[in-house]
Computed example of a mutant assay.
Amino acid sequence: MKEMALELRGDYIELDKLLKATGLADSGGQARALITAGEVSVDGQVELRKTAKMRAGQVVVFAGHTVRVLAAAG
């Protein structure tokens, strides 16, 4: 499983935007389709809300990739 980290710029990032920002989805539309299909999990649970707010400390898993959400620096 490939691991990566995403540092927040604010308090949160929406799940579909996270997938796009990390390159796991080519577009926002593709990201939303993957979420709707139940292919993305957050903290071990399938997440179906496309705009769920991902906050520091959460872990997103999709297609063998793990993304750890980190707090904004500073």
Rank of each mutant, 00 (worst) to 15 (best):
V59C: 04
R49W: 10
V42L: 08
V40C: 13
L19Q: 09
K50W: 13
G38S: 07
V61N: 12
E47H: 02
G23N: 01
E14F: 11
M54L: 12
G38M: 08
K50F: 12
D43S: 06
V42S: 05
D11L: 11
Q45T: 10
A21Y: 01
V59S: 01
A31W: 04
V59T: 03
I13G: 11
T36E: 15
E39T: 13
R55Y: 10
A33N: 06
R55Q: 05
T36K: 15
M54V: 05
G23Q: 01
G28T: 00
Q30Y: 08
A21G: 00
K17Q: 14
A52W: 11
A63M: 06
Q58E: 11
G57T: 02
T22C: 10
L48W: 14
I35K: 12
K50P: 14
S41G: 07
E47R: 04
Q45A: 14
T22H: 02
Q58S: 07
Q58F: 06
G23S: 00
K17L: 12
L34H: 14
L19C: 06
L18V: 05
Q30T: 11
A31K: 05
T51M: 15
A63Y: 07
Y12V: 05
A37V: 00
E39P: 12
V40R: 10
A56D: 03
D43C: 02
E14R: 14
D11I: 09
G23H: 00
F62H: 11
A52S: 13
A25R: 02
I35V: 10
A25G: 01
K50A: 15
T22F: 02
L15G: 04
A63N: 10
F62L: 12
A31C: 03
A56L: 03
V60K: 08
F62W: 09
E47C: 10
F62C: 07
S27C: 04
G29N: 03
E14Q: 10
K17G: 14
E14N: 08
E39I: 15
A31V: 00
A33H: 07
L34F: 15
V42I: 06
L24Y: 01
D11F: 14
D26W: 09
V42W: 03
V46Q: 09
L34Y: 15
L24V: 01
A31E: 05
G44H: 04
G29F: 02
D26H: 10
Q30P: 05
I35Y: 11
Q30K: 14
D43W: 08
T51G: 15
G28S: 00
A25E: 00
V59I: 04
M54I: 08
R49I: 09
R55E: 12
Y12A: 11
D11K: 15
M54N: 05
L15I: 00
G44N: 06
A31R: 04
I35S: 11
T51F: 14
T36R: 13
V46R: 07
S27E: 05
G23I: 00
